[in-house]
Simulated scan of single mutants.
Amino acid sequence: MKTPAPPSRPLEALRELTPARVGLGRSGASMPTEALLAFTLDHARARDAVHAVFDGQRLVMELGGLGLEVRTVSSQARNRRDYLRRPDLGRMLDADSRRALEKPGGAGKIAIVIGDGLSPVAVNMHAVELVRQLVPRLTEAGVPCGPVVVASGARVALGDEIGAVLGARMVVMLIGERPGLSAPDSLGAYLTFAPRIGLTDEKRNCVSNIHGAGLGYDEAAFKIAWLVREGIAREVTGVALKDESGTALIAAKPRD
C-alpha cells in the first residue's frame, strides 16, 4: 500500500481545515499587514460581542411561538459594567426575580435557562434554533420540560439558583461563551443535576462551540438530550458523567 504524498504546500492545506491562525508569515520583525488587519478586525468583533444588546424580548416572543411557557428574570448585575466587573452579581437572582419564580408552577424534570453571558450575540443568533431542536428530543426521551427562563446579566451559576427555586431535577443553561478571535458568537450549554446555590464547575457537563462554523444545532441537541437523559437516570452530572453520546449516535445510524 502506497503512502500518499504529502501536500506540496502543507500550511495552505491546514488553513483550509481550521479558522485558527496558522503560519501567518512575517514582514521584517512583524506580522504581514493583511494578517495584522484581520487580527484587529476579529478582536473588534469579539469586543463588540461582549457589549452587544441582549434581545430578550425577541427571544421571549420566538420561544412563545414554539408553544413554550417563558419567564424572564434578572441577576443582581444592574448593567453591563457591573456584570463585567462583578462576576458574583451575575450568579445571583435579584429579589423581584426570585419572588416571581417562587410562584406556583413547577419546572418539570428540567429547567432550560437562556442567559446572555459573555456573548449576547451568540444567544441572539443561536438559542431559539437550538431549543427548537432540543425540546422534541427531550419529549422523545420522556423528560418533561417546564417553563423556559430568559435571564439577563447571567453567569453560568445563575442557573443553579433558578433550577433550585423551580424545583427542577436538572438545569440546562444555554449561555453566550467568552468570544474568541475566530468565534465571537459561540453558544455553550451547561448541564447540572440537582441544582443548588454553591455548586462548582466539576458538577457540570458542558457542550460548547455551538455556532455556524462549529457544532450544529442538531448534533448539539442530540448531545444535550443524551446527557440530560443519562444524568437524570444516573443522578449525576460533571466529572462523574462522561459524554458517550457519540457511541449512541453511531449505533443509531443505519448500516449499509
Score class of each variant (00 low, 15 high):
residue 87 P to M: 15
residue 88 D to Y: 12
residue 89 L to R: 09
residue 89 L to Y: 13
residue 89 L to T: 02
residue 89 L to H: 04
residue 90 G to M: 13
residue 90 G to K: 14
residue 92 M to H: 10
residue 93 L to V: 06
residue 94 D to V: 13
residue 94 D to N: 15
residue 94 D to T: 06
residue 94 D to L: 08
residue 95 A to T: 07
residue 95 A to I: 02
residue 96 D to V: 13
residue 96 D to F: 03
residue 97 S to M: 09
residue 97 S to T: 11
residue 97 S to N: 11
residue 98 R to F: 00
residue 99 R to Q: 10
residue 99 R to P: 00
residue 99 R to E: 14
residue 100 A to V: 00
residue 102 E to Y: 01
residue 102 E to L: 10
residue 104 P to Y: 07
residue 104 P to E: 08
residue 105 G to K: 07
residue 105 G to F: 08
residue 106 G to Q: 05
residue 106 G to C: 04
residue 106 G to H: 09
residue 107 A to I: 02
residue 108 G to K: 06
residue 108 G to M: 08
residue 108 G to L: 12
residue 109 K to T: 09
residue 110 I to A: 01
residue 110 I to V: 15
residue 110 I to D: 07
residue 111 A to D: 06
residue 112 I to W: 02
residue 112 I to R: 13
residue 112 I to V: 15
residue 113 V to G: 07
residue 114 I to F: 00
residue 114 I to E: 01
residue 115 G to S: 07
residue 115 G to M: 08
residue 115 G to V: 03
residue 116 D to W: 05
residue 116 D to R: 08
residue 116 D to A: 05
residue 117 G to L: 12
residue 117 G to Y: 14
residue 117 G to I: 13
residue 118 L to K: 07
residue 118 L to F: 01
residue 118 L to H: 05
residue 119 S to F: 04
residue 120 P to E: 01
residue 120 P to N: 02
residue 121 V to H: 00
residue 123 V to E: 10
residue 123 V to I: 13
residue 124 N to F: 10
residue 124 N to M: 06
residue 125 M to W: 14
residue 125 M to G: 00
residue 127 A to I: 07
residue 127 A to H: 04
residue 127 A to M: 06
residue 127 A to W: 02
residue 128 V to H: 05
residue 128 V to N: 02
residue 128 V to F: 02
residue 130 L to A: 07
residue 130 L to V: 14
residue 130 L to R: 12
residue 130 L to P: 11
residue 131 V to D: 04
residue 132 R to Q: 13
residue 132 R to A: 07
residue 132 R to D: 14
residue 132 R to K: 15
residue 132 R to G: 05
residue 132 R to H: 12
residue 133 Q to C: 10
residue 133 Q to E: 14
residue 134 L to P: 13
residue 134 L to H: 01
